[in-house]
Design a protein around this nucleic acid. Sequence first.
DNA 1: TGGTGATCATAT
DNA 2: ATATGATCACCA
Length: 224
Amino acid sequence: MRPPTTPPSSPVDLLDRCSAIAGLSLGELAELAEVAIPANLQRHKGWPGMLIEKWLGATAGSKPQQDFPELGIELKTIPIDGNFRPLETTYVCFAPLLMQPGITWQTSNVRNKLQQVLWLPVEGDRQIPLAQRRVASGFFWQPDEQQNAILQQDWEELTEQILMGQVESITSRQGIALHIRPKAANGKVLTDALDAEGQRIKTRPRGFYLRKSFTEHILFNAFS
DNA sequence: TGGTGATCATAT
DNA sequence: ATATGATCACCA
């Protein structure tokens, strides 16, 4: 078995590719793909995600769009414990700190990315050697009405705060499903934002993340 | 002990 | 610096 060299032609094709790797370990997948296996993830935090991308035929590169643009599908690998509960929050996208005029939930990058997600849980307990961690079954998810409402509410609250020049007072404790945290290589990375007086300030870049409590429900519904 | 804030690798 | 892929790790 080898990784595909072309993007999936359809959602069914994509799901087939998931089925083909379900139950296999990251070590097996890395060996078949001729990818080096790091000893741990401390300096290779995105490694499982990149490996899975390769096996599903996602377009390489760092574009601010979905992983499968032709299908309108975003891929998210998610580390889970023995009970299929998420071990980490899920990064969604950067939080724009200099708002485009007329940005709404409907046109937001968060909504665009979460409209149709392929979740691929992977064993993530740190006591399991990286190479031995197995891939679970992937599944499609679309936010239901209630989930959409919560996401929209969180997004609007956080966006409003950014718009009001209050980015520095945003804490990751805000938001039921979606929250904002720093997202950068280190604390020295700064980007432009606006303060309450509309003056340009430098602040740490932020990203939108899904809380574990939210993704836990998604996983629970999928596997129960 | 788990969530918040910080950080790591890589491509453009 | 911004974007992708995320997980690390400190401390309340």
